[in-house]
C-alpha cells in the first residue's frame, strides 16, 4: 500500500482501466493540456496520446450524446467536466437518454458512459462554479451517482464505473484533490451502494456526503476530546444509497446528523433524514439535524464565503445540540483549504 493524493488515485485508476480495456476513451475540454484536468487525465494522455484522449469543442450537450452513441456501439467513453456546473448543459442527454436507455428501449445492455464532474469550493469561485449536484443527479433512476471522499474511494469507484454497464456520474470535490491516503496498487472496484464506516462510535451518527465525510471525521476528533464517540459514515454513493449502513448505525447511536455540501431543500441530507424517519423512527432519540448550505447562491467576497460553507465546527456544534450536551470551549480547526493559494 502506498500513499497517493486524491487526484493521483483518479489518474492511476484511469490509466489502469484504459490498459485493461481498449474501448475506454477520454473526452473533455482541455483533458490533454499541460494541466491535464488538475492532473487526473495527464497520465492517460502521456500513456495513450491523442488516439484515446480527446480535447473537444465546447459542446457539453452534444458531447454527452456523442458519448452515448459511441457507447451504443461498443465504446466506453469517460467524459470529464472541470466543474460539474457545466453538466447542466448536458442534462437532457444524461437524464432523458443515458439514464433511461436500458429500460426505455427494453434492451439487455445499457450505455456504459461515465461522467466525471469536479465540484469547486472556496477561493471566490462563486455561484456557478461551486455547486454540488449529487442530489440533482441522484433523483433519476437509471444512473449510479457517487462522490468519493478519499483517495482509495476515488480510485475504487472510478474502476467500478469504468467496468460496469450502467451510466455513472462521479462528483469529485476540488478541496479533496490534495488529500493523501493509502491506495492499493491493483485496480479493485468498489461497488456502488456500499457505504464506509470511517470511524466507529456509539453516541451519535454523522453521515457526510463528499467533502463533508472528511469534515465529519475531523469533527469527530474534536468530539472525541470531549468524550463523545461519534460514528462517521461516508455513503460514498448517493444512488444507490446504502441505507443499511446508516440504519445499523442509527440503531446503535439513536442520534443522527447529516452533513452535505449542497442545499437542504429536496437534497441528500433530506433523503437520509427521510430514510431515518421512515425506517429508523424507533431508533431515534432526538430529531435529525441537517447541515447544509445557507439558502442562497455561493457568494464570492471572502467573509461571505466563509459564512457560506459549513465547517467541521458547524458539525461539532450540531452534534452537541442534538445530544443536548453541556460541553463548551472546544478547540478550533483550520479550514480544509486554508493553505490553498489559487488561482484555479
Amino acid at each position: 500500500m502506498r500513499r497517493l493524493k486524491y487526484w493521483q488515485a483518479i489518474s492511476e485508476a484511469t490509466v489502469q482501466c484504459m490498459e485493461g480495456d481498449p474501448n475506454i476513451l477520454i473526452a473533455g475540454i482541455g483533458v490533454d493540456d499541460h494541466k491535464g484536468m488538475f492532473g487526473t487525465t495527464r497520465g492517460a494522455f502521456q500513456r495513450f496520446g491523442r488516439s484515446r484522449v480527446f480535447d473537444i469543442p465546447n459542446c457539453e450537450n452534444a458531447m454527452a450524446g456523442i458519448a452515448i452513441g459511441a457507447a451504443a456501439v461498443g465504446k466506453r467513453p469517460l467524459v470529464v467536466h472541470p466543474r460539474n456546473d457545466f453538466m447542466f448543459l448536458a442534462m437532457d442527454q444524461i437524464f432523458n437518454l443515458a439514464a433511461k436507455w436500458k429500460y426505455m428501449y427494453g434492451t439487455q445492455a445499457g450505455v456504459p458512459v461515465v461522467f466525471r464532474g469536479i465540484v469547486g469550493r472556496g477561493w471566490g469561485q462563486g455561484a456557478t462554479h461551486s455547486q454540488s449536484l449529487q442530489a440533482t443527479f441522484a433523483h433519476f433512476p437509471g444512473l449510479h451517482v457517487a462522490a468519493p471522499a478519499s483517495p482509495a474511494d476515488a480510485k475504487g469507484l472510478l474502476v467500478s464505473a469504468l467496468q460496469g454497464s450502467t451510466p455513472v456520474v462521479l462528483l469529485e470535490n476540488r478541496a479533496l484533490y490534495e488529500l493523501e491516503g493509502d491506495v492499493a496498487e491493483a485496480p479493485t472496484p468498489i461497488p456502488f451502494g456500499q457505504g464506509r464506516i470511517i470511524r466507529e462510535g456509539n453516541d451519535i451518527t454523522i453521515v457526510g456526503a463528499s467533502l463533508m465525510a472528511y469534515e465529519a471525521d475531523r469533527a469527530a476528533d474534536i468530539l472525541g476530546e470531549k468524550g463523545i464517540r461519534a460514528e462517521v459514515i461516508d455513503p460514498r454513493s448517493m444512488r444507490p444509497l446504502d441505507e443499511r449502513i446508516i440504519l445499523d448505525s442509527l440503531r446503535k447511536t439513536g442520534h443522527l446528523v447529516v452533513a452535505d455540501t449542497s442545499w437542504a431543500a429536496y437534497g441528500f441530507a433530506a433523503e437520509v433524514a427521510a430514510v431515518a424517519a421512515e425506517k429508523g423512527f424507533a431508533f431515534l432519540k432526538a430529531p435529525v439535524r441537517r447541515i447544509t448550505l445557507p439558502d442562497c447562491p455561493a457568494p464570492v467576497s471572502e467573509p461571505l464565503e466563509k459564512a457560506f460553507h459549513p465547517s467541521p465546527m458547524t458539525i461539532v456544534q450540531a452534534c452537541l445540540e442534538v445530544l443536548q450536551s453541556e460541553v463548551s470551549s472546544v478547540r478550533g480547526l483550520r479550514d480544509v483549504q486554508e493553505r490553498f493559494t489559487g488561482p484555479y
Binding site: 450537450n61 452534444a62 458531447m63 454527452a64 450524446g65 456523442i66 458519448a67 452515448i68 452513441g69 459511441a70 457507447a71 451504443a72 456501439v73 461498443g74 465504446k75 467513453p77 442527454q93 437518454l97
Partner: peptide, 9 residues
C-alpha cells in the same frame, strides 16, 4: 449527437 457518436466510434 448520438448518431455522430456512433459514427465517431
Amino acid at each position: 449527437a448520438v448518431a455522430v457518436g456512433s459514427a465517431w466510434a
